[in-house]
């Protein structure tokens, strides 16, 4: 009940507060968007929802913590090493768990990625222990003032890096031969195979790529969100939500949906009630699905072609 009353009375219920809440929502949403991007790349070329995607994010953060902390490497050196390490893990994951399968059913693939996520989480527990780790911000922690609202420089970093990743992905898919092959796989797998695309290699590549994107996400959010070995699941969950809301297979949609969920949650927590914040994001998601069963930007025709 404390909820609404002061807002209605409040004189200073001004643009600056709404702006602050939206900026907070952008910070939260950028994390969802990054995770959702990773989901999409694997989904596109394989129709697999990789439940271990959140673990890639966690691993990215953890590697960075080790490289920057105990090993004392500068950030710009540690960043690519951490991404590379997780990419290798993603590749190994595909080789060991996905590659050996002949004609797997979608459900068994889901369980396999869940089993994979359990293993990655367990491995991280042994490698880093059970503590929560922090990472220094990329630049200063001094907040930037924006019309009476504040935003952390780290959030600006996150937004910039997301923008860059999205741009590079778009260029990659549009202009490189490998990228085109991946898109062909996404559109029609048997046909792609017929024109001589090595589908198995594309699957491997998509796992490597989404592991790399997951790692980048983990590295850039850890200064804000901190990181521990248990965190992957919840990050994956939110990212999955964003990916579905945006329409599976649509990376742009995923990014937009990620920000949307973040902003909705933030506005709800700031203006109505924080107790039901997480539910509100999901209710919005369900409503959208009920009205538009293939997400905001998903194509109904494409989703019909997918076997699951």
């Amino acid at each position: 009940m404390i909820g609404l009353a002061p807002i209605l009375e409040s004189q200073e219920m001004s643009a600056s507060i709404i702006l602050q809440l939206i900026l907070s929502g952008v910070t939260i949403g950028s994390i969802y968007a990054m995770v959702a991007l990773g989901f999409n790349i694997i989904y596109n070329s394989t129709s697999i929802i990789n439940f271990a995607q959140g673990e890639f994010v966690m691993l990215g953060g953890m590697f960075m913590v080790s490289l920057v902390g105990p090993l004392n490497l500068p950030m710009w050196v540690a960043f690519p090493i951490a991404v590379l390490a997780v990419t290798l893990i993603g590749t190994a994951f595909e080789r060991l768990c996905i590659h050996p399968l002949k004609m797997p059913s979608v459900l068994s693939l889901i369980i396999i990625t869940i089993a994979g996520s359990i293993l990655l989480k367990g491995g991280a527990m042994f490698a880093w222990g059970k503590e929560t780790f922090s990472l220094p911000h990329f630049s200063t922690e001094k907040p930037i003032l924006l019309l009476e609202a504040t935003i952390l420089p780290q959030t600006v970093w996150i937004l910039g890096i997301i923008g860059m990743v999205v741009l590079l992905l778009a260029l990659f898919f549009r202009f490189t031969i490998v990228g085109k092959a991946m898109r062909a796989c996404a559109a029609n797998r048997p046909a792609a195979s017929l024109v001589g695309i090595n589908v198995k290699r594309i699957v491997l590549l998509s796992f490597a790529l989404s592991a790399a994107i997951g790692a980048i996400a983990g590295i850039i959010i850890t200064p804000i969100s901190l990181m521990d070995y248990e965190r992957g699941a919840i990050l994956g969950l939110k990212g999955f939500g964003a990916a579905v809301l945006g329409g599976l297979g649509n990376p742009m949609g995923a990014v937009v949906a990620g920000f949307l969920i973040g902003i909705v949650e933030s506005l709800c927590a700031g203006l109505i009630s924080s107790h039901y914040k997480d539910a509100v994001g999901l209710v919005v998601l369900l409503m959208v699905l009920f009205i538009k069963p293939s997400g905001l930007f998903g194509s109904a025709q494409v989703s019909k072609l997918k076997k699951f």
Binding site: G241, V244, D278, L289, F290, S303
Partner: peptide, 23 residues
């Protein structure tokens, strides 16, 4: 409404419902 959805969308919708109850 939920069972009209298919595949991963159905998975997400049921998951979402479960989480709403949990919240």
């Amino acid at each position: 409404p939920t069972l009209r959805l298919k595949g991963h969308y159905l998975a997400m919708a049921t998951l979402g419902f479960g989480q709403i109850v949990y919240v």
